[in-house]
Design a protein around this nucleic acid. Structure first.
Lengths: 161, 161
DNA sequence: GTACATGCAAAGTCTTTGCCGCCGG
DNA sequence: CCGGCGGCAAAGACTTTGCATGTAC
């Protein structure tokens, strides 16, 4: 067992629709449905949630196909793969960089309406030996539902320090 | 399969050594060695890396014990559990909040010498339905070693968009 | 002495992959 | 036509857990 962490997929965000036109990829029914369902989703679904959504329209689709297509669609820049901590990856119909907020209790993810930190990476110039590509800002807290539950149960899930 | 994301452990950073004194936990030899190895580590080791380090001194320790103790030690506020994306958790001898930088190629993690964003969470007041506990800022790039390799191989791992 | 802890192995969760027949362009 | 695709199931990577025994206090 060695530390393993494949590179995140460098995403080429062309902004164009139908990137597939210029690629070696085909637009299959499965791929199309997956993309459609993600774009219709209000939330940031996990692979399994996408699977469940698409399954209602294509009952015979397999989870493997969903994973493969989510990977491909994020390579194509049609969607964005999110690795925000927690155990699962989530997917965002919006391939543009933006910040997120994650519920520490249920894992729900929403967008964080915070302006991009444009200068923040400058602070690292000369202060790090890394080549910087970007940054990710994730807020952590409780979603409204879990906030209500926490209040009801009297449990304190707050995070001192 | 349901979206599952246990809460991050609210870390009580007392700064005191020997928090164990006041807790129900015992200081076993395994626990002690694990803590010691993490504190001596220059990097931010994964559970498996901690296992390998400790194994040199306690050859019969099991990986399960390492996982259990890393969990407990971070509950105690002696160390910090990091979930920075990628597939694995890493551990930081420093339980205080600070920012990190992660190599997209090999998964290595180092501290990011960037001043804490004190006001950033204020931007979310009234703009989100979440109860905010904190935030995490992770820079992404290539560590020096992987930078060198990328340059040597001519591969472009940069991240457009 | 009594909980809590360990070692070991099995199980769990999420994700990836090999194989082979199928189908989009 | 043919090379990418999908379905299926098995394998993989990382982490957690059940159980019987051991040990810190």
């Amino acid at each position: 067992m060695t530390a393993k962490n494949g590179p995140n997929d460098p995403v080429e965000a062309t902004g164009k629709k139908n990137v597939e036109k210029n690629s070696r990829y085909r637009m299959t029914r499965q791929r199309e449905m997956i993309l459609e369902e993600i774009r219709n989703a209000k939330a940031h679904p996990s692979a399994d949630e996408v699977y469940e959504m698409v399954r209602k329209r294509l009952p015979r689709i397999s989870l493997g196909t969903v994973y493969r297509n989510l990977e491909i669609l994020s390579e194509l820049g049609e969607i964005q793969k999110l690795e925000l901590g927690g155990d699962i990856k989530r997917f965002d119909w919006n391939p543009k960089k933006h910040y997120h907020i994650r519920c520490l209790n249920c894992g729900r993810v929403d967008n964080a309406p915070v302006a991009p930190l444009k200068q923040i990476e400058d602070e690292l110039y000369g202060a790090t030996v890394y080549t910087i590509f970007g940054h990710r800002l994730v807020f952590e807290g409780l979603c409204p539902r879990c906030t209500r539950e926490a209040e009801a149960s009297g449990k304190d899930l707050s995070n001192p320090q």
